[in-house]
Amino acid sequence: MSFSTRLTFENKPERRSENPHNPYKDSPKYPEPYVISSELKQAVNLAIYLRRPLLLEGDAGCGKTRLASAVAYELGLPLYRWDVRSTTKAQDGLYEYNAILRLHDVQTQKVVQQPPVDAAEIDEDKDEERVNRNPANSKHYRKFGALGKAFKLKSCPAVVLIDEIDKADLDFPNDLLTVLDEPWEFKIKETGETIRTNHKPIVIITSNKEKGNLPAPFLRRCLYHYVDFPNDKKRLQEIVEKHYQIREETPPPSTLVENAVERFLAVWNEGGLFKKPGTSEFLDWLKALHTFESKPYSAVKLEKDDLLPYRELLFKLQQDWKKYAKAS
């Protein structure tokens, strides 16, 4: 995929199994069957070079979310995912502090009092989950979120996915700006710590515009790219080829793939669908055509039949289901 960073990174041959290039322990273990356009690859490399968040928009199923995993795998970097909800606050991605658990430990005296532990002795990944919590040490009760974990890394940057940012309150994006900018630090008031990053993370943000446009100050801080659905026969066939290559599975017959791609794109482009199927639905549908029955679905039958087989894999709303529930 050939992403460039300030790290030592060279183009690598196609990998078909477990990640072999000495990745960080939180890096994805397996490659992502991702076919990237030259324009999107350039946007990723610009975001890496400038260390600015990359904001991705596009139709559901066009590959926005999976890009972060592909980048993290290719570079051998850790991946931390932050799924945004309507109640999400900016601090949630930095840390959570469990004051109730600390009070519980004090009152029940389940943990034997020990001398305060130096911060350097605390495993950065355990936090409040450590076996021997000591209520005398407030650091045992904080748990880092996706951005917090990325800021704490000493040896390399991390890839952080902030998924569906538009689900949160409108103030949420601007609150992130106080962290994703100089001096790239945040404070934990409960412990008195200041967490300052040694390696600025690679931040990939997705949006479906559920609540309209994002705030202008936030947009100015980001790089922007609109991810088009692979509405092209050749690109969709490339995705199929890479998907089966990486998973080391026997691909469907070429004629079945060709006819499935043509039939799928005809449905996708016909118009009138309330929710268009994405690439993941297409790959599931193709797998069913290939292996659900004892023999693969006939490519000729798929091309000629009015009825669409296994439509339950493609349509997720009643209106779309009914539209293809009977022959025209």
Rank of each mutant, 00 (worst) to 15 (best):
L256A: 03
V159G: 04
M1V: 10
D166S: 06
T194S: 13
Y324H: 05
R311I: 04
V112C: 11
F282Q: 12
Y34K: 03
Y297D: 11
P251M: 06
G278I: 04
V84Q: 04
D181Y: 02
S86N: 14
R142Q: 15
D123P: 07
V300I: 15
V267K: 02
N231R: 05
P135E: 06
S294N: 07
C62K: 04
S17P: 06
D171K: 09
Q113M: 13
N11V: 10
R235K: 14
Q109F: 00
S138I: 13
R133V: 11
R16T: 15
N174L: 05
S69W: 05
P296Y: 00
T291C: 03
A120Y: 13
F186S: 04
Y224W: 03
V159K: 01
R263T: 09
K89T: 14
L314F: 00
R142K: 13
I246G: 05
I165N: 09
Q107P: 12
P28Q: 01
T194Y: 02
Q318P: 12
H199F: 02
Y141G: 13
K200P: 00
I122Y: 08
L313A: 00
K89V: 14
P53F: 00
I36T: 07
T255G: 12
D166G: 01
E248C: 06
D105G: 12
L77R: 01
T88C: 07
P28M: 00
S4R: 15
S37H: 13
L94A: 10
R133A: 02
Y73M: 03
A150C: 00
E121Q: 13
V44P: 00
A299T: 05
F172T: 15
S69T: 11
A168Y: 02
F151C: 03
K149F: 02
E281R: 04
I122E: 14
Y97K: 07
L219M: 10
K275F: 08
A216R: 04
D127W: 12
S254V: 13
K275A: 07
D175I: 04
Y80P: 01
P183G: 06
M1N: 12
A266Q: 14
G76P: 05
L236C: 01
K41N: 14
L176M: 11
D92Q: 07
R85K: 14
T279I: 08
A70E: 11
N208P: 05
C62M: 04
V84H: 01
N208K: 05
S38K: 14
E121F: 08
R66Y: 12
A120Q: 11
I195T: 12
Y244R: 03
P296M: 01
G58V: 05
L273R: 04
V112S: 14
V106H: 06
C156I: 12
F315L: 08
Y80S: 09
A90W: 01
S69C: 05
S2M: 07
N132P: 08
H243N: 10
E249D: 06
Q42N: 15
